[in-house]
Design a protein around this nucleic acid. Structure first.
Length: 1046
RNA sequence: UGGUCUGUAGCUCAGCUGGUUAGAGCGCACGCCUGAUAAGCGUGAGGUCGGCAGUUCAAGUCUGCCCAGACCAACCA
């Protein structure tokens, strides 16, 4: 028994099982870590890191398809860069702070709201958050690992690590010192459900804004000092703010109409009258005159409710320039505690605001009638009271887009609240400028979605009145008489001033740091931390430096490796992570945070609707892993429009993924299986080569040159889908041309053929390693005996032959074959039936002779004739090169018509004249149209013609039958589960007519099927029990076939 | 209301700076091949390239308008 050089592999394999095997192989060999350690951080003093930022996910649920897509890209690029020689560290990160963690804990601890948490104890509450926030990390690790994504979990960063938090407060202090942070009392989107303000971009995330039906009220405010009762009408979508109304605003230059009936006057803007025609009719109103808004300015009115009736400066009409005739009445109700514009306008008018609503959205004792009631519950009652006082002009519901809290799904309110802000508006121009240096995929994001957003950037509210988060590192004197503000940017600074090192930067420990106010000579006041914590987006925006505890550690590394080289997330992160990274990076370092960014699209269901856990309208990823494997899923997603920002509609059964298995995984495996099968059968050990004297070898090597080169180009341009398309096309050529056409060489153990296939498969493994990390690993390691394809270097293109002529010629050959097979098909001539002659007529046939053996085999003909005289086989047609249209202009039309109808003449100088225009050189080509009735066909590219001699002589017919017989015997061998190298003994029982065929082709048959003996049996008596028999039909004959392994 | 993207075969999608008869995969029909075999290959049917205008010798490709969908923004007082 000879030693086999390659592992015996099964012809078909379970890819999911193969993947599990590779995953444990990697784990055992520590392959991932090696792939990083193998690469130096610097080469000749030049940085060699490829810096990739892994955006921290929040682990409050299991990963879904969106995460998987991102994860695949996050793996593909680093694997590619590693093979190209870069050191690519990949640390996983966890977003641990913020509302989701707190809400989860509230639910689990059954405490709800700020007061209950304070009661329960911040310490205990935060401890619980800390524990529960990591609950899903194991599950995440499982999913991520199963998807063959290499990322360092052990060394992962968490936003709650004290090092991370220290870097975050450092950043805060930097911004403070640059004057980019301020405290302000402003109206902000406020989630009463989580009792905290939200940032302007949180309410824009995903589907936070959606349709909602709200009551609207048009109320009449009674003007003071009028002869006749006069109502000025204002419209609002938030009736609950009417008790807090302190002013009305009208447009300075707008026209207002005064309408009256016997009892009263009503004022509407002229532009809004038509909308109120129904009410006007009901009240029997007639317009008496119009006045300018400026004339209304300064008038006072009686408040609708008396809660704030003595409020200073209040209940006046303000004439301003920003009111427009929109949906309302042209007169705006102002509740400065609940509207941004309201607040600004009232501040200018010297009206102090009132906020009679607490943190849970309940009215305070300032509104005794509704104390403890949720604001939304009071809308109806407010309308009822207005109706009773005759001041309700209209009540209706209104469908509009309204922001909701992205974590609780409850509608938000706008409310004045104290907060800390980053002055983003001050440096937004800088951000716009820095954005120009970023390479965005797809490109339109740069000046579109992201660029536009930057241009309109608003100041960012970074404070949250919550518990579980990085502290706002600001200490303020508790006595306004002795004001002082201290901001801290490190633990050391804290220790220095407070004399003790905080146990943790989390609340409540951080809050326990107090000290006497140094600016207070009485010594009575103290420095206390402001209570709020930081928006968790401030933390994720700090990720590039905070993950390495900059500037306290890794100072040199960070400074030479920032900005990052690459990030990827889905497109909505232009409002989220991409944005906060940009803000932090611009404010701190005046640099863009990353160089390249892929925004991928969204995975949808087959009806193009969002994936929803509730509807279960998508296949379970785990099922897909188990059924088709992760490599197929990776390929499927990465070769899709997702990579250029488009959506991908995934079908419920995952058929697209199964299709990938059939088109990519199986063909690749088949090639490898084929190689090992015959290398082992022939006891061949192959090695890598870069040249061969066989033309097919040189062809496929040239093709692999092109493959490596184009994949490299696409990858360098971050065009992942294009790269996969190249690999797929190569697979097709390798399997359905190179291997198929070379089968005989493999059967005969031609070393060069094996060397070539070995080389090509190895290259294919390398090129597809980022896209099929496990399948290519399996094949590569078994084929080469190397440790891992992911530890190998990217193939050096320059070493491979690059023969463009050969590739072009081969294209003609392949075209010839498919044309010839087309003729066979049309004439119902099976390929197994040999034919005598094929004529190939191509005008320029230099180099084609070399391929005549290939043609003979592929088309199964005895002789090939190559000719260049097209005119003998059909009529020539003039085909005009359309590019001459540029030169001819309007004459072109005529030239086209004339040439198509064959009206042209050949000139003596070899040129052609059409419609009076002389054409030469590249201006035209002649194309053959085959004469009807011949077994001939024009090639699809029109370059030539193929003619088949369809006459079948007796001899050819018999050879055909012999081949049929061989085919049948091979089938029987297969059925008997014989190895391709087993020798057999044959007994055939057949009709007299076939005996002649078998006799004549006896040697041929025996050698084709590896038969040592062939016995023709004419009666049943000779049947022996150690033979397996089959009934076979060949043409119109039926025979009994017996084979036995020797 | 504005911006960006998308609209090509039953389905999922290619189609470069405008250029001859618009492609691929899946599905369907019919064949073929098989010493890779629970694979492979070929052929066919199927398209007014969302619509209407325009520019041009020539438009799936460029321009304008319109329609539909997605996303982003504005409005939402």
């Amino acid at each position: 028994m000879t030693k086999k050089h390659y592992k015996q592999v099964p012809s078909s394999i379970s890819f999911p099982k193969l993947e599990e095997e590779i995953l444990s192989y990697w784990e055992k060999n520590n392959t991932f870590q090696k792939s990083i350690d193998n690469r130096p951080s610097k080469i000749d003093g030049i940085r060699n890191d490829f810096v990739f930022y892994d955006g921290p996910p929040f682990a409050n649920g299991l990963p879904h398809y969106g995460h998987l897509v991102t994860g695949y890209v996050k793996d593909i690029i680093p694997r590619y860069k590693t093979m190209k020689g870069k050191k690519v560290n990949r640390r996983f990160g966890w977003d641990t702070h913020g509302l989701p963690a707190e809400l989860q804990s509230e639910k689990e601890l059954k405490v709800s709201g700020r007061l209950e948490i304070l009661d329960y104890g911040i310490d205990k509450f935060n401890k619980h958050c800390e524990k529960s926030v990591l609950r899903f990390t194991d599950e995440w690790e499982k999913y991520v690992s199963r998807s063959a994504r290499w990322v360092d979990f052990k060394n992962s960063y968490k936003t709650m690590d004290s090092g991370y938090m220290e870097s975050v407060i450092w950043a805060f202090k930097e911004l403070w010192e640059k004057g980019l942070i301020y405290e302000d009392y402003r109206v902000v989107p406020y989630s009463w459900a989580v009792e905290s303000p939200l940032s302007n971009f949180e309410i824009r995330m995903d589907n936070a804004t959606r349709q909602r039906q709200d009551p609207t009220v048009t109320a009449g405010f009674k003007l003071n000092g009028m002869d006749k009762t006069t109502y000025i009408c204002a419209w609002t979508t938030t009736p609950w703010t009417l008790p807090s109304n302190l002013a009305l605003a009208v447009g300075k230059n707008m026209e207002y109409a005064i309408l009256e009936n016997e009892q009263a006057c009503y004022i509407f803007s002229v532009g809004s009258i038509s909308k109120y025609s129904k009410e006007i009719e009901e009240l029997g109103l007639k317009q008496i005159k119009t006045i300018k808004g400026s004339e209304l300015g300064g008038k006072t009115y009686t408040p609708l409710f008396n809660y704030f009736e003595n409020h200073e400066n209040a209940f006046r009409i303000l004439a301003v320039d920003w009111v427009e005739d929109g949906e309302g009445t042209g007169c705006v109700h102002m509740a400065p505690g609940f509207g941004e514009i309201d607040m600004e306008a009232c501040r200018e008018a010297g009206i102090k605001l009132v906020v009679p609503v607490d943190s849970k959205g309940l009215f305070t004792s300032e509104i005794p009638d509704y104390e403890g009631k949720h604001v939304f519950e009071t809308n109806k009652d407010i309308a009822r009271r207005l109706r009773e006082s005759g001041q309700l002009i209209r009540f209706e519901t209104y469908l509009h887009n309204y922001p909701h809290c992205w974590r609780t799904d409850e509608p938000i309110i706008y409310k004045a609240i104290n907060g800390w802000y980053v002055k983003v508006s001050e440096f937004k121009d800088k951000m716009v400028e820095l954005n120009k240096s970023i390479n965005w995929i797809p490109e339109h994001i740069k000046d579109g979605q992201f660029g536009k957003w930057l241009e309109n950037a608003k100041d960012w509210n970074i404070s949250r009145d919550r518990f579980w988060g990085a502290p706002i590192p600001v200490w303020i004197s508790d006595d306004p008489k002795y004001p002082r503000i201290d901001v801290y940017g490190s633990i050391d600074e804290l220790e220095q001033d407070f004399g003790t090192r905080p146990e943790s930067l989390h609340r409540p420990h951080i809050d326990e740091l107090t000290r006497p106010n140094p600016d207070d000579p009485t010594g009575k006041s103290a420095m206390r931390r402001v209570e709020a914590v930081l928006d968790c987006w401030f933390e994720s925006g700090s990720m590039p430096f905070a993950q390495v505890h900059y500037p306290f550690e890794n100072k040199d590394w960070f400074e030479s490796n920032f900005p990052g080289d690459f990030i990827v997330e889905y497109v909505a992160q232009t409002r989220g992570w991409f944005y906060t990274l940009m803000v932090m990076s611009t404010a701190l370092f005046e640099r863009a945070p990353f160089k390249n960014c892929i925004c991928h699209g969204v995975v949808l269901d087959e009806k193009h609707e969002k994936l929803s856990k509730r509807l279960k309208n998508y296949p379970d990823p785990v099922d897909m892993f188990n059924k088709h494997g992760s490599d197929a899923m990776r390929w499927y997603m990465v070769s899709s429009p997702l990579m250029s920002g488009g959506d991908l509609a995934i079908d419920l059964k995952g058929a697209g993924i199964g299709q990938t298995v059939r088109q990519i995984n199986i063909p690749m495996w088949n090639a490898y299986y084929f190689f090992t099968l015959y290398a082992n059968a022939e006891n061949i050990k192959a090695h890598k080569i870069h040249s061969s004297d066989n033309v097919l070898d040189r062809y496929i090597l040239s093709k692999s040159h092109n493959l490596v080169k184009s994949v490299e180009e696409h990858m360098d341009n971050l065009q992942l889908a294009s790269a996969t398309a190249e690999i797929q096309a190569f697979l097709e050529t390798m399997n359905n041309w190179y291997i198929r056409r070379n089968r005989e060489r493999f059967w005969n153990g031609k070393q060069q053929a094996f060397n070539t296939l070995y080389t090509v498969i190895e290259i294919l493994c390398k090129v597809s390693a980022p896209f099929l990390p496990m399948l290519s690993e399996k094949i590569y390691t078994e084929l080469t005996g190397q440790e891992s394809v992911h530890l190998s270097d990217w193939e050096n293109v320059d070493e491979l032959p690059n023969d463009t002529n050969l590739i072009n010629t081969m294209d003609i050959i392949r075209e010839t074959c498919s044309t010839a097979l087309g003729i066979r098909e049309a004439n119902k001539l099976r390929v197994r039936q040999p034919l005598q002659k094929m004529t190939v007529v191509v005008e320029n046939h230099a180099g084609l002779e070399e391929f005549s053996d290939i043609l003979k085999e592929e088309v199964n003909v005895k002789d090939i004739k190559i000719d260049s005289d097209l005119s003998r086989y059909g009529d020539m047609q003039l085909v005009v090169n359309p590019k001459i249209g540029k030169r001819l202009g309007s004459k072109m039309k005529e030239v086209m018509i004339e040439s198509k109808s064959g009206n042209y003449k050949n000139l003596d100088n070899g040129n052609v004249e059409v419609a009076g225009i002389e054409l030469q050189g590249d201006d035209y080509t002649m194309r053959l149209k085959t004469t009807d009735g011949m077994a001939a066909q024009t090639m699809q590219n029109g370059m030539g013609v193929v003619i088949l001699d369809t006459e079948i002589s007796k001899e050819l017919e018999q050879e055909g039958l012999a081949r049929d017989l061989v085919r049948a015997i091979q089938n029987a061998r297969k059925d008997a589960k014989l190895d391709v190298s087993n020798r057999i003994s044959l007994k055939i029982k057949l009709q007299q007519e076939l005996v002649e065929v078998v006799n004549q082709f006896n040697d041929f048959i025996k050698s084709e099927v590896l038969a040592s003996e062939l016995v023709i049996v004419l009666s049943e008596d000779d049947v022996q029990s150690d033979y397996t028999y089959e009934d076979i039909k060949i043409g119109s004959y039926s025979i009994d076939l017996g084979i036995s392994k020797i």
